[in-house]
Write a protein that binds this DNA or RNA. Structure first.
Lengths: 140, 140
DNA sequence: GGTATTCTGATAAGAATAGTAAGAATTAAA
DNA sequence: TTTAATTCTTACTATTCTTATCAGAATACC
């Protein structure tokens, strides 16, 4: 039960992209990496997933970078994490022999409850929430 | 973000021990393994942790096995999972350089919210809840 | 044309997970 | 008192997952 570095990096990167998009400037991978302390080459890979998920738009070539493709209030932590980690699975039981009777599986019960709770939390955390809480007006 | 096999097995094993304890019989590792489809040798290791955490009592020697050491209503999923997985950590940020300013770390924010939510769910799932929901009166 | 950047794919080291195996210690029962 | 069943302990192993690193191709601004 842990948050992967992938998810952590993706949240941080999206926060930076969101901040800069609201200032009408794009930000490139090197800047994000430096601001948030993320290995650049690794981040490059992650951002591709964020792009494929439709969360950011890329601007290629010199002076390129990334901007949000939607409003910060319309992108939540669930989408961001799912973009880089794939659909949250949880639970080996699903479909296994011991749990074909999955409506009698205690582990499955726990997994379902957890999933619902986690989804609820992550769906309610938007990038706008991050900006309102963490971004100072005077920062770039 | 996933439930480990360890946690899954521990929940299932504790459920079986709880059921049997309420019938005043102890159950051994082989029986648990067979009933729940868990590799026996692996389960042996896990149960030792459950014992060290004070959740079960062992009866050694022939006709030995395990019984709950507390009432089923007083043992919850959080304790069970923590017993086999150690304290839930989540989040690489904690204490890292990029997040020494951890009150400005968006990933840390998410981790805190998740942790609280997960704890809340797991604390409210007791073994008695499992028994009431899943155990038929006519089963041994 | 040169440079900055995104994009793509291959590779690799290390950690974690899940499991296996062998046998020592303990105790009920024959 | 022996035997058999069981917990307990330790060491090992195979596989997958995570977290990168690296090299270079494609793209677009100046």
């Amino acid at each position: 039960m842990k948050i992967s570095a992938k998810a952590e990096y993706a949240l941080k990167a999206m926060y930076e992209i969101a901040r800069h998009t609201q200032k009408n400037i794009n930000i490139n991978v090197s800047e994000i990496a430096q601001l948030q302390g993320i290995p650049k080459a690794y981040l490059e890979q992650l951002i591709v997933h964020l792009k494929k998920a439709g969360l950011v738009r890329s601007i290629r070539g010199a002076k390129g970078g990334y901007v949000l493709s939607r409003n910060a209030g319309e992108i939540n932590a669930n989408e961001i994490i799912e973009a880089v980690e794939g659909p949250m699975d949880l639970g080996h039981c699903i479909g296994s022999k011991a749990c074909s009777k999955s409506d009698k599986c205690v582990a499955n019960d726990v997994v379902q409850q957890l999933r619902q709770s986690i989804d609820n939390v992550l769906n309610n955390i938007t990038l706008q929430y991050f900006i309102d809480k963490y971004s100072n007006k005077e920062d770039i």
